[in-house]
């Protein structure tokens, strides 16, 4: 299921403003890739460009290639909606649908697309997704209760269950723990460790310890100067980035000298 993504010369714009400048990156399958860097350096923007969520913002556009399975996701024949069915996303703040129950939230990806599915298949899909998100045991007795009634950490895992219920190849996570307390954060981090056996995972995080704990590869983004676009400074295995980075800026950031 998991897939490799190859990014080449990707420029990301908001209108005329170049936000991220010529990124080249290979994202390995069945691994966790962490993106770190100071605020506003474009790592979230880059993440959103991987499943074409970036262009939801009016005026936003992208130049360059994002290739998955030999197919450029920005090819003009490609439907951005279909891309998002293959590359799931989890957001900074948990965002379950307020009008839906826990069950309906997990089933949302299928139901909102008006796909027909037998009740037993749907039950099975919901259960396996909730189990996959380590949430099944906590909610199995109240699947018909509103998703908004869960705690923040549970809501976030519900959102992860919702994302993996459409069986994506890749899972993007945009600071998934920044709105959570430490215990919930730990639960989500454990979950990420398990999910990488099946999915390609890309996670944006502000928390360097988190990047060190969960990721196999780490990319460091930084602004090339005030008012200039963000860029990928370096990318390597997590242990290398945190012990022996090749760039001075990376070392400064990791040792807490700025950011």
């Amino acid at each position: 299921m998991a897939k490799l993504i190859d990014v080449s010369d990707l420029n990301i714009y908001y209108g005329d403003f170049l936000a991220v400048d010529s990124v080249n990156m290979t994202i390995e399958p069945r691994a966790v890739t962490a993106l770190i860097g100071p605020s506003g350096c474009g790592k979230s923007t880059f993440l959103r460009s991987l499943n074409r969520m970036h262009e939801v913002i009016p005026g936003a556009r992208v130049e360059g290639k994002v290739v998955m399975d030999g197919q450029d996701l920005y090819d003009k024949d490609v439907d951005p909606v279909a891309v998002r069915q293959h590359i799931g996303m989890v957001f900074q703040r948990p965002n379950p649908f307020p009008t839906m129950s826990i069950y309906e939230n997990v089933a949302a990806g299928v139901r909102l697309n008006a796909k027909r599915m037998k009740k037993s298949d749907m039950d099975e899909l919901v259960e396996s997704s909730l189990r996959g998100a380590n949430l099944w045991n906590e909610v199995k007795d109240r699947l018909d209760k509103p998703g908004m009634g869960l705690s923040g950490g549970q809501q976030q895992r519900l959102c992860i269950a919702r994302a993996i219920a459409i069986r994506p190849s890749v899972l993007l996570m945009d600071e998934p723990c920044s709105a959570l307390d430490p215990i919930s954060t730990l639960a989500v981090e454990d979950l990420i460790g398990e999910l990488k056996n099946e999915y390609t995972i890309v996670i944006v995080t502000h928390n360097m310890q988190q990047a060190a704990r969960v990721s196999d590869q780490t990319g460091f983004f930084n602004l090339s100067g005030v008012g200039k676009p963000g860029q990928l400074v370096e990318m390597d295995s997590t242990s290398t980035i945190f012990s022996n980075p090749s760039q001075k800026a990376t070392e400064d950031y990791i040792s807490g000298r700025f950011g």
């Binding site: 499943n51 969520m53 939801v56 909606v81 279909a82 891309v83 998002r84 069915q85 293959h86 799931g88 996303m89 957001f91 703040r93 965002n95 379950p96 649908f97 307020p98 949302a108 990806g109 909102l112 697309n113 008006a114 959102c159 919702r162 994302a163 459409i166």
Partner: peptide
């Protein structure tokens, strides 16, 4: 309606009109 909900639906591969 919070924008989060629209993005959540888009990220599930739901077309805009269905969202």
């Amino acid at each position: 309606v919070p924008n989060d909900l629209r993005e959540a639906a888009y990220a599930l591969g739901v077309p805009k009109w269905r969202t």
